[in-house]
Structure formats: C-alpha cells, structure tokens
Amino acid sequence: MQAPNGVLWQGELDGGVQVALTIFPRAGTERVEGTARYDSMLAAAPRQLDGQLTAQRRLSLRERDDVQAPAEYPEPRAGARFEGTVSADGLSATGQWMSIDGTRRQTLTLTRKAVYRERTVKVAGARLTERFPETGRPRLDALIASLRDSGCGEGEHECRSGIELMRLDGGAVSLLRTTWRYNGGAHGSLDFVGGTWRRDTAESASAASAAPARSVYTPVRLADLLQPGEACLQKLNDELQVELKRQGAAEPERGALDVQALRDTRTPFTLYRGGLVMHYAPYAVGPFAQGAYQVAVPFARLGSCARPAATGRDKSPETNEKEQT
C-alpha cells in the first residue's frame, strides 16, 4: 500500500460554514502546504496555505495572502490562520481559527475525512505519477478509483494525475481529476475530468433487520442540475461567459456548453454547497499562456432554472456512520 501523502480535514465554523483543508507535507521537513475551501465562499479559487506540523502534533496553518489574485476575489476578505493540536490517533485536530492579527477567533474541531496517497509506476514505457484520496469507505473509494488513470496516453512519455475531493458531505461527493501529459513537445498539456454523485440512503430490505442503512451514490450530470430546455442552457452559458470575461479569458464564447456536455458524467464540473464550478483547461477559452480557469455559478443566479433536489445540498455536514459492506 502507498504511504499517506496528505490529509483532508473538514470542520464547521460559526454560522454553519464548512471549511475543508487539504494539507500535504514537504518532504524531509515539518513544513506543510495546501488549500482551504469555505463552502460557497471562494468556491472557484481556494486559499493557499502554508504551515507546520511538529513531532509534538502541533498544527499551525496560515493563508498565503500574497498570492491571492484580486480578480479571483471580487469581494474583499481578510485572511485567516489555525493553531491547534492533532489527536494521538491522527483522526481529529482541535484549536483556534482566527484572523491573521488574532483579534477575531473561534474554536474549530477538524475531522480527518481522507488521506491522500501517491505512487509512481511505469506503464507501457511511460512514467505515471498519481495522487488520490482514500476515505476507508468502500463505496466512496470505488468512486474515486473510477476516476484514476490506468496509464498515460498513446505517445506520451510522462503523465501526472491528481484527484481532489472538492466536496464531501452528507448530500454529495464531487471529484476533480487533473492530469498533466507530456509527449516531447515544448510543454505538456493539462486536462480536467469531473465526477459528482448524490448520496442517498437505502433502507434495509427487511424491516426487522438491525443492519444500518447503506449509502447509495447516484451520478449527477449538469443536466440533472438544470430544468430542461434551451432557455435554461442559455442562462447557464450566459453566467459562464460573463465570469470568463471578468477573469480576462481571451475567448470566453468557447466556454459555452452544449447538450452533450450536460449529459456527460465526466464533464469537468464540481459542486459546492452554493452552486457549481466549471473547470476549463489551458487552451479551452484562450491561449496556453493564460492557463486554466475556474468559474463558480451560484444556484441562486440560475433562478428557476436550477434543480436543487438533484444536488443533495440540503444534507450537510457529512455523517460519520460506517458503510455497510
């Protein structure tokens, strides 16, 4: 089994705001780095984190203010930091979540929801490096496995694939796979693949059974999030293109979706509790030099075109029951 390479922590701040921290160690040091996501806040662009995890299990994290592009944050927001202690079993961390200057603070308990593993293998002469989360829940880990790369593409010398848990709560799980591919050209290419499932509970077939209800995951497509019809597809495309223009994409019109993209379960979108995020790879809406784009579309902006019942967004946070195998 591959050694753990990182951890996904989740907790809830005052007002029911979920915070998700994905933390990776820097090899050979006590330093760590990663990202912070806050529910609907900053959904398309997570805050970057730096910090330290000591041998005494002291965890210190700080948002990296100097790299937050203003264009990605139309609403001003102060940075934050965390000071706490990881439990002896490594399954939780408790401490203070506070403003950078320490004037505003609250107690925050984080629960470990997944570990990240990494491996490098040779497949058909190409070097594949992949990083993926593992939750210890068989059905959920099977969804993650369904997005893992089995190898590089034809003619590729090297590829690096990473799967990130973008949303994990009682209503849904949303994954994004990012793959860098190199075939000997001037630079590699980057592509995104998404996967989102609604989490339901299936009752035992026998009413007298004492077995717990089990989780059932149903694929969610963009078509499941929109009311049918050309008008609602156009509404979504209008929101996407307005935001792409605001972010400076050279060809925002290329970000428009068609009916096929709505029906494809691997279209690169992910969910947060307030809406959806579309992920555009380099070249998708402009030249390679402009890089990738992420566009958040709140469900509220879609109005009557949104179908919230398909998202499971009213079921949070994630429950801690074990899956029935």
Rank of each mutant, 00 (worst) to 15 (best):
G16C: 03
A93M: 02
G16F: 02
K113R: 10
R47N: 15
R62I: 05
A309R: 05
P308D: 15
V220G: 11
A145G: 02
S189K: 04
R307A: 12
L8R: 03
A142R: 03
E321G: 15
T120H: 01
M98T: 12
L225I: 07
V115E: 14
F269V: 09
G291Y: 04
A261R: 09
R177S: 00
A306K: 08
L42D: 14
E239Y: 06
L225K: 09
L244M: 13
T319Q: 09
D224N: 14
N183G: 12
E83I: 00
V19N: 10
A309N: 10
E158W: 01
G79P: 04
C152M: 00
P70T: 04
D50R: 01
R26K: 12
E33T: 03
P70W: 08
Q96P: 15
Q10M: 10
T196G: 08
M1E: 14
M98R: 05
Q10H: 11
G170S: 08
I144K: 00
P219R: 03
Y283R: 06
Q106W: 07
L236D: 08
A223K: 07
S206A: 10
D238E: 10
G303Y: 12
R148S: 12
E156C: 02
D191Y: 14
L168T: 12
D101E: 07
R104Y: 14
Q10A: 11
I163R: 06
